[in-house]
Design a binder for these strands. Structure first.
Lengths: 332, 332
DNA sequence: TATTTATGGCAACAATAAAAGATGTGGCGA
DNA sequence: TCGCCACATCTTTTATTGTTGCCATAAATA
């Protein structure tokens, strides 16, 4: 691999001259510039980005840390981020936090390998983030609140979204509403649960401990929870699943058992994943503004890099998408 | 940010000693080692990965280049790659080739920012890949064949998969089989088209130019193609769509028009995306072994990094997944 | 005295950039 | 008209980024 040294010596100039020429610095005469560029072409010279990053202490790269990388759920979020990073002439690289302490994500946070980071990965802990965030390395957190310098918070109004969903179920006349829960250590799940309880309370429905089922945010979890409900031979009116995947798992279990969804039981999910529209019956759910979230996150990073830290947490609103799984539009 | 220099001076040792101590080199006495580590802890020292990469000329990172990053389709592929990279103690970072010449992907290929690259992005051109591939930078190509040094080829048997799909349609008694095509510059599409034609030929069916519809690999494309078929008032027996998204788009159009899929018309897709199972009727399709492909790709990289370049292209077999959209299991 | 053990000095990695040096040109006074 | 200085233009020297690892060196042991 040819380096700038090779270029310089082929062109018969000093290394710095070559550097200036390659960076089109006006102090270099056109003649010399041409000579250097010709040498670079001839050697197929490619600047070593790592060396440049080291010297300039800047990578022109934003990192996106996801707990999974392979999750289909992030599609829109990534689009939003990409729109903004590209517009700012920055690169975006996505890394996974799988592997805990040894994950690529942790490495990227600890060593300053990007100029900013967007985190949506519950298995990255607060301490690490607080440590990593610096003036020249803002961190945007999308999955939990964290009040610390150089850390920016953007969140979806999970509580309000859940409230809307449950209110919708109540307005359809349902009284006994199961909460199909995600993992307890998930902040999103917690907030959705709070919204659920507030909606019950505001409608004078007493929450019963029997209404809480664990589904772990997975399709399998939802499936098994529904199986348990079926075994108890006492089906509830309605289910509010803390995410769509669990809702879809539950739908599957009910369908197998001959329970008619939308009639015998109403189900609402959360997230509005792509599948929600296609599952049968289609799933009523709470849509998160993922693309806006992504764009916002990237925007916040660039503002921060320009010295403007917007410290108040940003709360994005959700939207209730009514489909067939609550029966309200069954005959559509 | 504390550097190794700070650590060394706080510990009262030379920089090289600090470096050795931090890397747990046995030649340093435990006493000194402890002193250095204590200093590092106190300063919250984090090694600068960029400097290390520069010095060692190694990044311990594999890059995955995708044309979209946000495509849900890659989920399994990424899992496969990740399994292997993690097992080898390497990091995986995903970058997008959106933006053409200025994309992050191109930057990563040109400047040696990873120790190896896996490419699944049709908008990265051969020349660039040939240029980037080196002994210490193997490139695995997943979306086209390319015979060049240090370039490894892994492909799915698109031709054979298409053959199976069309043969299936023919075995169900269909004679007039539309090819719903992807973009012409897609190698995958080309191969699928070849498989389609071979199946027709082997079954003594003459291909007619009228059977070719353009769908561009998108749902919208499939939808519109189906609309056109409907307008012509002369529905074919069956459709072989070169990918699932187009098939799903077509299904939508037919459903809207009251055409019963599986009875009035049979449809087969390609890819077996997650939706295929959930769409109604569920879609018969050709499954690609994406996870195996990912694992294989990563494995090839590591073998290459160890000096073993396996030059023959690898061809992975597909599997026909029979669901409801051809009617064969309508009453399931 | 020879050998081992522990540590320090320094160059190297590839690039950038400030400062210093080299060269050429023009103006102006003697 | 010649000689000198000032200044502009272009190029090189040198320092710097944070880390690693070879080689040297000093002290301790055999």
């Amino acid at each position: 691999m040819a380096t700038i040294k090779d270029v310089a010596s082929l062109a018969g100039v000093a290394i710095s001259t070559a550097s200036y020429a390659l960076n089109n610095n006006p102090r270099i005469s056109n003649e010399t510039k041409e000579k250097v560029l010709a040498a670079a072409r001839q050697l197929n010279y490619q600047p070593n980005g790592i060396a440049r990053d080291l010297k300039s202490n800047k990578t022109n790269t934003i990192g996106l840390i996801l707990s999974d990388l392979s999750g289909p759920f992030y599609s829109e979020l990534i689009k939003g981020i990409q729109d903004v990073t590209i517009a700012n002439g920055y690169d975006l690289i996505a890394v996974s936090s799988i592997g805990g302490k040894n994950s690529t994500a942790v490495k990227f946070l600890k060593e300053k390998r990007t100029d900013g980071v967007i985190v949506l990965a519950h298995n990255i802990d607060n301490k690490l983030i607080i440590n990593a965030a610096r003036k020249d390395m803002p961190v945007v957190l999308l999955d939990r609140p964290l009040d610390s310098e150089y850390v920016l918070n953007i969140q979806v109004d999970n509580e309000g979204g859940a409230y809307k969903a449950v209110e919708h179920l109540i307005s359809l006349g349902h009284n006994e509403i199961i909460y199909l829960s995600g993992p307890n250590n998930s902040y999103d799940n917690l907030k959705r649960f709070e919204g659920y309880k507030r909606a019950l309370k505001d409608n004078k429905i007493n929450f019963s401990g029997r209404w809480l089922y664990q589904g772990n945010f997975t399709k399998e979890g939802g499936y098994h929870a529904a199986k348990v409900m079926l075994l108890q031979n006492d089906l509830p009116d309605a289910i509010f699943a803390a995410n769509d995947e669990m809702a879809i798992g539950a739908i599957e279990a009910f369908k197998q058992a001959g329970v008619e969804i939308g009639k015998d039981i109403a189900i609402v999910g959360f997230d509005d994943i792509q599948l929600a529209e296609y599952v049968n019956p289609s799933l009523t759910t709470v849509k998160q503004p993922m693309r806006e979230m992504g764009a916002m996150a990237a925007q916040q990073i660039f503002q921060a890099l320009n010295g403007n830290f917007f410290t108040e947490p940003i709360l994005l609103q959700t939207e209730l998408i009514i489909r067939e799984s609550c029966g309200s539009r069954k005959g559509k």
